[in-house]
Each structure stands twice: as structure tokens, then as C-alpha cells.
Amino acid sequence: MSSYLFVPGNNPGMVQSAHVFDAKGVIFDLEDAVSVQDKDSAKDLLKAYLETAAFDNVYIRVNDIYDLGKNEIEEFNNFDISGYVIPKANTKVMSLVEKYTNKSLIPIIETPEAVLTMKEIGEFDNVTGMLLGGEDLATNIDVVRTLDDIELLYARHKLVMVCAYLGIDSIDTPFTDTDNDESLEESVKYSKMIGMSARSSIHPNQIPIINEIYKPTLEEIEFATKVVEAAKINDSGVFSVDGKMVDLPVIIRAKNILKKAKAYEKN
């Protein structure tokens, strides 16, 4: 699966059903989705929930590390969660977070500083992925979000390159127009096309759409199978399948597609 679902931490109805959606990861949100007066009750709700439930790939988006975030990390360290999503990440924030936990970290790239220092942020030990925070980034560069996210072009492409270089997940920003499935599809297709390894979402209805787009198509699987089979009997470095040139990078890509297809089959 290639989707991450944000779930408001103070909404019991959504918290209790978070595990039924086919998301690769669930991010329980203590930050933007929770009002200031309910920060305490969201934390209590998540703790009580996590004492009774266990499922894989659970993350908590904590608050600003200089505000409530530090205590939240320390309080959830004893729970069976994968890790934390870190807002307003920069190298100073990450060096602090690193002192508070050994769990997996997903910093959010949502400031111009973070875009420019993405590689340094991603190089911290427990970082397993980086997530683009499109709304905040747009605000920070004083632009309005558009449906095709043209204003985020540089940040999105840079995130893909940096994460691929570091071998970690590149997670694209949520598509916030929840009533516009058509534009969501276009946007997710673009995420996949440029190499984002996953897309985040703020609504469970978006998860099947994201998963379906990221799932290798029958055509891709058939071609990849032909390539891998042909590679087994072909000694020369370069050969042809269905009139297309095949060399080592194409073989590697074909193997990756089959690996992804198998992962989807299991789910």
C-alpha cells in the first residue's frame, strides 16, 4: 500500500475505525486537527486506545517540539507505535527529537528552510521517510494551493530525489479538496509518475483511490514479467521485449514492479 491516513486524535469515531482502511500507515494527529483546548483530551484518548488496540505502522503527529511535542514523544515512547511525524522539521528540531526517542521519524517538510535543508533533515538516524506539508509550505511562501500543486513543483521533485538518494520513503502532501475525486486522481497519478513512494491523505475515502493508482497495472505486470523471464535466458546486456530495448535499469524496474504487485496481492 502507498497511502498514509491522517486521523484526528480527538475523534473517537475516526480513531476506532482507523485500522480498517487499507492505508500503509495511520498517523494519529495531535497537532493541526486538534483544537488548543482539546490537546489534553486527544492525548488521553490515544493512550487509552493504544492500550487496547495493536496494529502495524501507527504514527503520531506530535505538536511543535518546543511546545507540547517533547512531552508527547516521551509519553508515547512506551506504546507499541512505529514512530512520530514531526512538524516544522529542521535540523535543530531533529537533533532534539533524536534525544527523546529511538522510534522511527517522519519529518514534515513545510517551511522554505526545510525544503533547502531536506537532505540534512533526512540524514538523521531514525528518519524512515519525509512528508511534504503542502498547506503550510504554501502559506510560508505566500501562495495559494492550486489543484495541480504547480506552486509545490520544486519541493515535490526535490523530496523525491533526496528520499531516493537516502533510501527512505517520499510521502506526498495530502490532497485537501475532499469532494473532488477527479482532481485527486490526477494529483495522485502525478505523485506516482514523479516517483513519490506514497501519498498522504486526510480522508479515508481517498485511500482506495490512492492505493488503486499506486497498484501496478495489469499491463505493467505483464510487461515486467516478460522482461524478467527474458532476462533469465538472455546473456547479452541488451535485448528487446515487445519492440522495446531492455537493459539492466529496465530489468531492475521490472523486478520492482513485480515486488510491488506481490505486496499488493498480500493485502
Binding site: 489534553d40 484518548l45 487509552a48
Partner: peptide, 10 residues
């Protein structure tokens, strides 16, 4: 149950 417990604790 866990929600009621959490709300009471808060």
C-alpha cells in the same frame, strides 16, 4: 470503554 475511560481521566 477506552473512550469513556479517557474522557474521565481528562
Amino acid at each position: 470503554d477506552y473512550t469513556i475511560k479517557a474522557r474521565l481521566i481528562t
